[in-house]
Amino acid sequence: MSETLPVTLPPAAEAALVQRLRERDETALSEFYDRYSAALYGVILRIVKKEEEAEDVLQEALIKIWNSFAGYDAGKGRLYTWVLNITRNLSIDKIRSRQHRVGNRTDGLDDSYAALTQAAPTTFRPEHIGLREITQQLIPEQREIIDLLYFEGFTQSEAAEQLNLPLGTVKTRARTAIKVLSKIIR
């Protein structure tokens, strides 16, 4: 699944890019975009599900990455880990605020979750080999949990409530799903 790993930079190239970003070199942003936008945009799109919003979030994410770059500690993990966290959090904030607006008019989380799952993500096409592999190996219940936790930003308790399952079952399924992912990725 090498084509699904476009951001595995050689350590020296990643260090050079980090150095330029740290030195506030604005030209480094275009290199950053070229290397990371696909990896980040895919996650954003999967979370917010609308192209216009995904573009806004990508832009916000780049600005946030630039502005808070001093907070990145290369000793604690790869650049991708850090930027992915920022991007995923912004995306989840986006759908949370949207759910909040919806929730003011209706009944809150359950309805809006139902609405989200019913609204077929028209722009999202799971055509990557890596993704197909993953969907083949994760059983549907595991995939449902992992998507709820990772892409909808549910806590494990919220997921348990949502799926009407005991918390322990959610935890076990999440752990098993992550173990399966771990094996595929290795």
Partner: peptide
């Protein structure tokens, strides 16, 4: 790493026209 791999499996290249818009806005 497992969750990152799952995220990466969803990678989608943004439309080419987005690059100039996003970069100049940023």
């Amino acid at each position: 790493a497992a969750l990152e791999g799952y995220a990466l499996a969803h990678a989608v290249a943004p439309p080419p026209a987005m690059r100039a818009r996003v970069l100049s806005n940023v």
